[in-house]
């Protein structure tokens, strides 16, 4: 290797080790391999003056040196860039444990959440959801439902009536069963209808009563429908509502618009039937009334009870809500305290 090349390499090594900033590195690049006036660029140009023999060896050595210089500077620049990036990123560090920024979301009413869930189940089982008037005539609220003239439900002790003289006396509906009549008048069997809604009874508010609450009613009319179908349907319904292991129990009971009638119990969703505070130790929770639609009810809407049979079942959403969420006072449901409402999702 020529002395000249050795000298150049030594000079470069010295200058390289002296470069401490990114600007030094770029200056080094301009000085050594810059297109204009770079030391090695200029050196290359002197090669032409040499003999072909010398040109070949010196040229190769010079090229080797140039490659070395370029790569060394490139490496150095890369180190500086990496350092600069690291510094920038460090500067941009945030505390990811600070609270996220969001709009405080609102919450749907627990009755709505439950009602939507129940509607979803009914629809998935082929039922049409039906809605109707909350102010009802005697016919729909009582007569058509086979509720006897002297039944306590009809009394102004139990049912709200509207004041004023009218051709038809009007009451606030005391059960969603009124919708059975509307639904059957609008359709011809076979039919499947579910009606959720507000109902009213003259109960003074206390921890377990409100003068207004929500019910949902399921109704199915077809040929060949039996009590067994009712039981199977209710079983399927509670399994979808509370989980696949839920069991049901039927107890004979009395509701004027069904015969035979049954009270439905289901195994407690909390303890699964072994007995706990929610089910008061019995393992069972009362769901609501049910039964085979009374022949008088079918006749009222012009359905022949010998040809078609059907069942109806109902449940109260407020009580279910109270059990599911452990409410100790159901007046909370209609106080609309945001601290209460925000607990449901």
């Amino acid at each position: 290797m020529s002395d000249r090349i050795t000298q150049l390499r030594t000079d470069f090594e010295r200058e390289l080790s002296a470069a401490t900033a990114e600007a030094d590195a770029t200056a080094l690049r301009d000085r050594w391999v810059g297109r204009k006036g770079g030391l090695l660029t200029a050196e290359m140009k002197t090669l032409g003056k040499l003999s072909p023999e010398e040109r070949k060896t010196t040229g190769a050595e010079l090229n080797e040196l140039k490659n070395y210089v370029e790569s060394a500077i490139e490496t150095l620049l890369g180190e500086f860039a990496a350092k600069r990036e690291a510094e920038q990123l460090a500067k941009e560090r945030i505390d990811v444990t600070l609270p996220g920024r969001r709009v405080q979301a609102g919450h749907l009413h627990p009755i709505t959440l439950l009602r939507q869930k129940i509607e979803d189940i009914f629809v998935s089982m082929g039922y049409e959801i039906e809605d109707g008037p909350e102010i009802e005539t005697h016919f729909y609220n009582f007569e058509a439902l086979n509720i006897p003239e002297n039944h306590p439900a009809r009394s102004p002790q139990d049912t709200f009536y509207l004041a004023g003289e009218r051709t038809t006396e009007l009451a606030l509906r005391s059960q969603t069963s009124t919708m059975q009549i509307h639904a059957m008048q609008k359709r011809t069997p076979p039919l499947r209808v579910a009606a959720p809604g507000r109902v009213f009874r003259r109960d003074t508010p206390d921890a377990t009563h409100n003068p207004m609450f929500y019910q949902v009613e399921g109704l199915l009319i077809d040929r060949g429908i039996t009590l067994g179908d009712l039981k199977g349907t209710v079983e399927e319904f509670v399994r979808r509502l509370f989980g696949p292991d839920t069991k049901t129990r039927f107890r004979p009971s009395y509701f004027p618009f069904v015969e035979p009638g049954a009270e439905i119990d289901y195994t407690c969703f909390k303890c699964g039937g072994s007995g706990c505070r929610v089910c008061k130790g019995s393992g069972w929770i009362e769901m609501g009334g049910s039964g085979m639609v009374h022949p008088n009810v079918l006749r009222v809407v012009g359905i022949d009870p010998e040809e078609f049979t059907g069942f109806a079942f109902g449940l109260g959403l407020d009580r279910l809500c109270a059990l599911m969420y452990g409410l100790d006072d159901i007046r909370l449901l209609y106080e609309n305290d945001v601290r209460f409402l925000e607990q449901f999702r």
């Binding site: 509607e119 082929g126 499947r192 039996t226 009590l227 179908d229 399927e236 107890r251 049954a262």
Partner: peptide, 24 residues
């Protein structure tokens, strides 16, 4: 007759499918 013989004896069945359900 059904209640004394026992509602527990009821065979649970599901009514055959009858078309699609519908929301309000």
């Amino acid at each position: 007759v059904a209640r004394i013989s026992g509602y527990d004896n009821l065979k649970t069945t599901l009514p055959g499918s009858a078309g699609a359900g519908a929301y309000l």
